[in-house]
Amino acid sequence: MKRSNSDAGIVEYVRKSNNAIIQNALQDYFPWVLTIGLYIVAGFFLPQLFEYKTIQTVLLQSTAVTILAIGMAFALIVAEIDLSIVSVLLFAPLVGVLVIQEYGLPGLVAFPVTIITALIIGYGNGFVITKIGVPSLIQTLASWWALQGAVLSLTQGRTLANLPEFYQTIGVGSTGPVRNLVILTVIVVAIMWFYSVKTVSGRRLFLVGGDPDSASRMGIEASKYRRHAFLISSILASIGGIALIGRVGVISSGTGADILMPAIAAPVIAGVSLFGGTGKIINVPAGALLVQLILTITRVAGVSGYEFQLVQGLLVFVAVVFMELKRQESLENVLPGGA
């Protein structure tokens, strides 16, 4: 029996619709495609990457960076930057530990104390930036410097090793076959994704960062949402600090010193614009995994200590440039006439 023209038209329409869905998905979630693709390709040359131990290491070592990168993404979304996260991740958990040691409180109390400390720092940054007008680059750089000095003062340069059991549970504990660090990271990602796409406040952050004039005409107080971004960034930095400290098992003045650049690179690789207003929170973990994967590939490939940072930096640079070119191509495709 011959297929009618209408049936053929329906089949063709469904085929084109399915192709469009696939193309849109690949474009929207390209950072995941890039990360998984790189892992598979690199694994053929370095089979160690497919070993369970290596996969677990990549996941665990990317947890803190993922959490911090999501916080940084919210700052970037409102066209700001938060350099203080690298010190908040150390200072806030340190305050939590010192409080419970000083007053003999249960270890679990360290968590709310850490969050409250981060809230105070985040509010302070946001207030100075939005009310006084100090640029975020300068204010958060000053906070980074001051908090780092506070850490040195509180620890007197000592390394604190006897951490509460709460930190050990988070850092090295498991729930069934899954490490608690991975569970914590998934929960953070899920909550912040929901906030960014399903709540009015989350969606307004993108409008404030991308088109502040339109936001103002709609009666949206831009400074309020910029402060929200710094609160989120600071809170997530403290949670990332708990994850990092729990994994390494100590607090020292050097803890997390090398995490700032990956925390900035990850959201940029994931497509979050440095100029605000665009980006998908769900893609940020892919950026963090890609940064950690580059680090792991460099190590597994046997790059020596002298060239290690150079090679790692070059690979991250290539990834950032590649994602920026991809973003520009996407913008050209959605502009009228493809211009």
Rank of each mutant, 00 (worst) to 15 (best):
S233R: 07
L98D: 09
T159A: 13
L295R: 13
Y52W: 05
D258M: 10
A257S: 15
S234C: 05
G71I: 02
L94F: 01
P47R: 13
Q23I: 04
L260Q: 03
G171P: 03
R227N: 05
V303A: 15
S6R: 15
V88A: 09
A146W: 00
T199S: 10
P212Q: 10
T159D: 11
S223A: 13
L90W: 00
Y167E: 13
D258E: 14
F206P: 05
F50Y: 09
F45N: 12
S216Y: 02
L295N: 13
G254M: 12
A64M: 14
S84H: 03
S201E: 10
L315N: 07
G256I: 02
A161R: 14
K16P: 00
Q23T: 07
Y29V: 08
L160F: 11
T130H: 08
I129S: 11
G122P: 01
D213A: 13
G157Q: 05
L83M: 15
A288F: 01
P267H: 06
W144F: 13
E324Q: 15
G96D: 06
G254H: 07
Y29A: 14
M72R: 00
F91P: 09
P262W: 00
L46E: 12
I245P: 12
L108D: 05
S201P: 00
L105I: 03
I77S: 07
V178P: 03
N125E: 13
L205D: 01
L76A: 04
F275T: 06
N283M: 10
A270W: 01
F111D: 05
Q56Y: 03
I21L: 12
K131G: 01
S196D: 07
R3C: 02
P31V: 03
S136P: 03
P47S: 09
P177T: 06
V284I: 08
L236F: 01
F322Q: 08
K280A: 15
F206V: 03
P47K: 12
Q101R: 14
V182H: 08
A266H: 04
I116P: 06
L60V: 02
I67A: 14
F194K: 11
Y103D: 09
A263W: 00
Y52S: 12
L46S: 11
A110L: 04
I242Q: 13
M72T: 04
I10P: 00
V300Q: 12
A301N: 10
